[in-house]
Simulated scan of single mutants.
Amino acid sequence: MAHSRTRRDSKSRTETVDVATDGRSTRWDEHRAQRQGELLDAAVSLIEAEGPRFRVGRLAEHAGLPRSVLYRHFKDRAGLERLIRRRVVDAFMRQLEPTMRFEGTVAESTRQVINAYLDWVVSHPSLYAYVGVGTHSLSDGSVVADAKTAIARTLADRFREVLDSIGVHDAPIMPIATGLVGFVDATVNQWVADGQEATSEGELREILVLAAEAILESGLAYLGVRIPPDQPLKDLLVP
């Protein structure tokens, strides 16, 4: 009997130790995740301040860590840079997403999205260059390509909601959304590559808006749809 009780006590103590160990492990994982996030934010700040040519040594110096300790938070340099790009793209998407709600007319909604996109590019030239926006197509599997595809899908979803509300169902709207994203993206990429000299920023905004409206209008016309220019899109949505 005594042996059996001792085994139960031992088992109880073992389980208690396991729980405590799991708790420490969880706290350590949380600490590592927090520290990794802080290092990624520091890397983004360095790129903003010093240009797109990122150096791991500068990040280690900035964080007050030996490079070997820095790499404990990341698999390798490629993994570190991939996470930095993800951090940058996530910040860009947070700025863009609120404009893709279609709260105004077609023209107003188009201008809001394009202005938000161009605002980010102009405000963060080093980050734009670092993530290599101009070198990634919509299907190359990169973080940037994933973001472009997400934008196109979000726009397609918003278009589809409007079309469903006016009785146009199962419309092939994804090619139109993809075309819009591809056009704006390629045009801005070329503008940046040309040194922004041939066309002013204000001219570029107007060209992008007018051309995007034309693409959308012709695409909707193909579907047999015409939305008046002064029609608020939210009024078309069925509650």
Rank of each mutant, 00 (worst) to 15 (best):
A20Y: 06
L163S: 08
E38H: 11
D29G: 00
P228T: 11
R86M: 12
L204G: 04
D170R: 13
D194A: 12
P228C: 10
V168F: 01
Y130N: 08
F54S: 00
T99K: 04
T16V: 02
M174T: 05
R7I: 06
H124I: 10
E108M: 05
R27G: 00
G202T: 05
L96D: 13
F54C: 02
A171H: 15
A42K: 09
A150T: 15
V17L: 04
G219P: 15
L155W: 04
R58S: 12
L96Y: 04
E50R: 01
E15C: 08
T187K: 12
I215E: 06
A107F: 03
L163T: 07
R86E: 10
S126K: 10
A78P: 00
S4A: 06
E217Y: 12
R53I: 14
F183P: 00
V121Y: 03
S126P: 00
L163G: 07
D140T: 05
K75A: 13
R32H: 07
A186R: 15
V69P: 00
A78S: 14
V238T: 14
Q190E: 15
L163I: 06
W191I: 07
H73G: 09
S10P: 07
V225L: 04
R7Y: 08
T154I: 10
V44D: 06
H3S: 14
P239T: 03
I47D: 00
A33G: 00
T105I: 07
V89D: 03
F183D: 03
L138H: 03
S126L: 03
G51Y: 06
I114F: 13
I166P: 03
A214S: 09
A150G: 10
F159P: 01
I215A: 03
G219Q: 14
L39G: 01
E97D: 10
V106C: 07
R85G: 02
L216C: 09
S200G: 08
A177Q: 11
D9Q: 05
V143T: 13
G132Q: 02
V133M: 09
I166S: 04
L236F: 14
E103H: 07
L59F: 11
R87G: 07
R111D: 13
G37R: 15
V69C: 01
I173L: 13
R153Q: 15
E161K: 12
M93L: 15
L204W: 04
A177C: 08
T6K: 14
G132K: 07
G132C: 08
V56H: 09
E203H: 06
R72S: 08
L83E: 15
F92M: 09
